[in-house]
């Protein structure tokens, strides 16, 4: 390639590259040439947009600091009593697929007809609504369909959330992330380290040869949930329970049940319950050898 430029050549390149050499300096367009009060994107408008962004950012960070991200207990595939809950923006879909004509035999209608079809028509909206009119009040079909979907989604989300709250109330369940926070708070108040679920040190069993444990509790099937060594399973560990509850409270839980725990007042006599409670109350970390 020639490195010398012919002064009469029309197009002059930078070296042997394909970049054209030009001598005009970077002069922006004159915005007064455009109609209306338009302004430059950089820096004028971007600065204003950034100010809106900062307001949003501050609000966002206040939320982040005020409400820590939730974390429940480690996933347990054998937990049969957990109430499933998708993130809030899927609730409308979750609720929609619970109705008689959208589930069971009609699930195909629910999934394809009532969920898939609206999404596909939304995707293809410009090809379905091809009129030239842009104002929404002059496009009654498109606008009313959209408003109807919005109302439906809002309603379904609300119903789904309401159902969830009801279910929590009926089953006397506290959402796990809240339960965990409370537990952590309690432990910290007592001066203990913050508990990490599944990583707690379970104290050894006290008086493990007591017939209360080897006979009464085996017959009552305590170990099927609380574990053969009372190390916990579907239900909490009972070793060390004496640190959390006193004898009276334990007897009350056995008699009347609590959350997922059934009541045992019909299966065990009062004496048996008292025996078991007394034995469990002895299960303290300091007593364990």
């Amino acid at each position: 390639m020639a490195h010398k430029h012919d002064p009469n050549e029309k197009v002059v390149y930078v070296g042997d590259s394909r970049i054209r050499r030009h001598n005009n300096v970077n002069v922006p367009h004159d915005y007064s040439a455009y109609p209306g009060k338009s302004e430059a994107f950089i820096p004028n408008f971007l600065l204003k947009e950034w100010m809106v962004g900062v307001v949003v950012l501050v609000g966002f960070l206040v939320l982040v600091i005020a409400e820590p991200a939730p974390l429940g207990y480690p996933a347990d595939p054998l937990n049969s009593s957990f109430i499933p809950m998708p993130d809030w923006y899927f609730l409308f879909l979750y609720q929609l697929l619970k109705y008689p004509y959208t589930s069971g035999d009609y699930l195909v209608l629910g999934v394809l007809g009532l969920s898939g079809l609206p999404f596909i028509s939304l995707l293809l909206a410009p090809f379905l609504d091809t009129g030239k009119e842009r104002r929404f009040y002059r496009r009654p079909i498109a606008s009313s369909l959209m408003i109807l979907s919005l109302v439906a989604c809002t309603y379904l989300t609300w119903v789904s959330w309401h159902h969830y709250q009801e279910e929590l109330r009926i089953n006397e369940v506290t959402p796990e992330h809240i339960k965990r926070e409370l537990e952590a708070e309690e432990a910290v108040k007592k001066g203990l380290p913050r508990p990490v679920p599944g990583k707690e040190k379970i104290p050894a069993m006290v008086a493990s040869d007591d017939p209360t444990f080897t006979e009464t509790m085996k017959e009552a099937q305590c170990i099927s949930c609380h574990g053969a060594e009372l190390q916990g399973g579907n239900a909490p560990a009972l070793r060390g329970v004496g640190d959390r509850l006193n004898e009276e409270e334990i007897a009350n839980v056995i008699t009347n049940g609590r959350e997922a725990m059934p009541a045992f007042k019909d299966q065990l006599s009062k004496e048996q319950i008292d025996q078991v409670a007394a034995w469990l109350a002895k299960q303290k970390a300091e007593g364990a050898e």
């Binding site: 939730p70 974390l71 429940g72 207990y73 480690p74 996933a75 347990d76 595939p77 937990n79 957990f82 109430i83 499933p84 809950m85 998708p86 993130d87 923006y89 899927f90 879909l93 979750y94 697929l97 699930l107 195909v108 999934v111 394809l112 959402p175 796990e176 992330h177």
Partner: peptide, 28 residues
């Protein structure tokens, strides 16, 4: 949103994903 919800691997994540995948499984 759906894939990120599973990642903390707590019960909420696990069961929401299970339900979500069951819905996906019901497509004919």
């Amino acid at each position: 949103g759906f894939t990120g919800y599973l990642l903390p691997w707590d019960n909420k994540a696990y069961y929401a994903t299970k339900v979500g995948l069951e819905i996906a499984g019901s497509v004919p």
